[in-house]
Amino acid sequence: MVLNGENISVKDGITLESLLEERGYRIPMIAVELNGEIPQKSEYGSIILKDSDVIEVVHFMGGGSQDNDTLVIGGHEFTSRFILGSGKYSLDLIKAAVEHAGAQIITLALRRAATGDVANILDYIPENVTLLPNTSGARNAEEAVRIARLAREVGCGDFIKIECIRDSKYLLPDNYETIKATEILAKEGFIVMPYMYPDLNAARDLVNAGAASIMPLGAPIGSNKGICTREFIKILIDEIDLPIIVDAGIGRPSHACEAMEMGAAAVMANTAIATAGNVPAMAEAFRKAIEAGRGAYLSGMGRVIEKGASASSPLTGFLHD
């Protein structure tokens, strides 16, 4: 069969939907032409493909630089800027949430394994999604390092999100321990994405320790309070040459949009989606907000009329040519 001009071979009986997913297309964002006809998206799951089929898959392309606006973390490229958390909601919603979110990275926590036929989250996560295990539960660098090594053994790849939390009331991260863990794990070849309290000096230390991105918190985790640390995150965005991913505290799509408008490279959210009335719909709302914010940032935010400007005598009247 021919897909976008390329000869490919596929499994017998595969549906159009499965093929698109296997190839990593984001169905909400594409259209398909099958042998000259354009089927409805709702039919994709029931169309069985034949070897003689010719398929064209297209998507919209913005003008200008957005064509190749990718997020690069540790040498891996992503077109989505939404990192989805997987906690606090039922496993059978995960697939729909990922799809509606358009997420290409999903975070996972490591727990003692259950035996037998107890559901495992990995069975529910669509292929082509990058797994980002976190070290949640770690209270210091040593524990974070241990969890990271175990996660790699499970086969989740080299990505690791470091969470070192020794505060059980607000769950605020411990920057000092986080830096130590980052240094150890980066040396072991992990792609380290540390979650941190937005402090410029600590962020610089994380860069020097080998972090692949910086994940400052917007507000205490789970608080849904939005970007309370706005001024400090702006400083990190200005000063740090790694992707800044706002993590924690993002309670609604408008918060996510704001982070992206500020120039954040991506947004991570979990609770806001997990606790929504309709999880997939909220995931999609977040996706749109993140794309809108990114678009605004890339297009160069326009002029903001400042209030309180005072008329005063000109400063430049003294000049002679």
Partner: peptide, 11 residues
Amino acid sequence: VRRALAHETFT
């Protein structure tokens, strides 16, 4: 220039 002047910090 107007866009630059609207920014709080300069790139």
